[in-house]
Design a protein around this nucleic acid. Structure first.
Length: 282
RNA sequence: GGAGCCGUAGCCAAGUGGUAAGGCCCCGGUCUGCAACACCGUCAUCGCCGGUUCAAAUCCGGCCGGCUCCU
């Protein structure tokens, strides 16, 4: 059985994953693009060693910050695990929708070529893409996606189907409440030493890609460079995290069949029981 | 009590007679190789009342609110 736990930051996914893993004697598998990396602990809100509670955790801490890693790599890594652990219950947790979808649905990452399109305007690129597919879903201004599309050799545009028997469990809470949780969580990260963590990573690896794009890291880098104040940095991280949470909802609501459960923060046992009951009866 | 300035969306803000720029936030969405990415969409009739005018956020009068100065 595969149980996939999704939802925005701070709703209790980590706690639930360990509880379900214990109940089903399963293993927890990471589905978060940042928690793949070693040493990105505080800012990525990675499970702490003591929270793992003896449960086996896979696909956490498998890369150094200097290493590149993408969806295609994740798909391969996840499928290797699903293959190797066929007789175990898998608890897949994380907020990276694309990774989950690419791993569990029949996404095909074909050969890719690296062509330089920098001399083309957005409009020209868009027209090139339209020639291949009249119903293209990519916006004209989205250069990155347009270039990716052109670099792909095979254009598989079929609707991807789910390859495994998966129960998608979503944890959620009211928007206002979520934003409050996010704010508190960010403040806590700073108390736990986020600035130090980023500073150490920066000294060790330099301004590598993952640090330049991960929320909580890119903003602290700006602060360390003296471009923004500490307060501005904190506010920026909160805002970016809110935006991120909203994008996550959009993805999970529209890309996968998620059964949502409201987190009861005063009584998490109740949330857990609701979910166990649902899993038993489905 | 007197004089002046100001009042445009949740916030910042342009527009001084021709039918409300822009940015941020919020909200909604797209999604097969950076996905904690990249990108898209929606969102006001201009403090209130009255007047002038074919036409007013823009001009005039009154009122309300805020700020500064004077007595």
């Amino acid at each position: 059985m595969i149980i996939c736990i999704v939802g925005p930051t701070g709703v209790g996914k980590t706690l639930l994953s360990v509880m379900l893993a214990k109940y089903y004697n399963g293993v927890v598998v990471n589905a978060d693009a940042c928690q793949i990396y070693r040493e990105l602990n505080i800012g990525s809100a990675k499970v702490k060693e003591e929270e793992k509670d003896g449960v086996e955790h896979l696909l956490f801490d498998i890369k150094d910050a200097s290493e590149e890693y993408s969806v295609a790599d994740y798909q391969k890594d996840l499928r290797d695990i699903l293959n190797k652990y066929q007789d175990r219950n898998i608890i897949l947790v994380g907020g990276t929708g694309l990774y989950i979808k690419a791993g569990l649905f029949d996404y095909r990452f074909s050969a890719i070529r690296k062509k330089d399109y920098s001399k083309y305007s957005n409009e020209e690129l868009y027209k090139k893409c339209l020639k291949r597919d009249k119903n293209l879903q990519i916006d004209q201004n989205n250069r990155r996606r347009l270039e990716n599309y052109l670099n792909r050799i095979d254009k598989n545009t079929q609707k991807p189907i789910l390859l495994y028997d998966v129960k998608f469990i979503g944890l959620t809470t009211e928007r206002d409440n979520l934003y409050e949780i996010i704010n508190k969580r960010v403040d806590k990260m700073f108390k736990e030493g986020l600035v130090q963590e980023v500073d150490d990573l920066l000294k060790k690896y330099g301004e590598v890609n993952i640090l330049k794009r991960a929320i909580g890291y890119k903003e602290v880098i700006e602060y360390l460079k003296g471009k923004i104040s500490l307060e501005e940095c904190q506010e920026l991280i909160k805002k970016n995290t809110r935006h991120y949470a909203k994008r996550q909802y959009t993805w999970f609501n529209n890309q996968m069949p998620v059964k949502w459960f409201n987190t009861n923060f005063n009584n998490f046992e109740e949330t857990y029981n609701n979910i166990i009951n649902y899993l038993k009866s489905n």
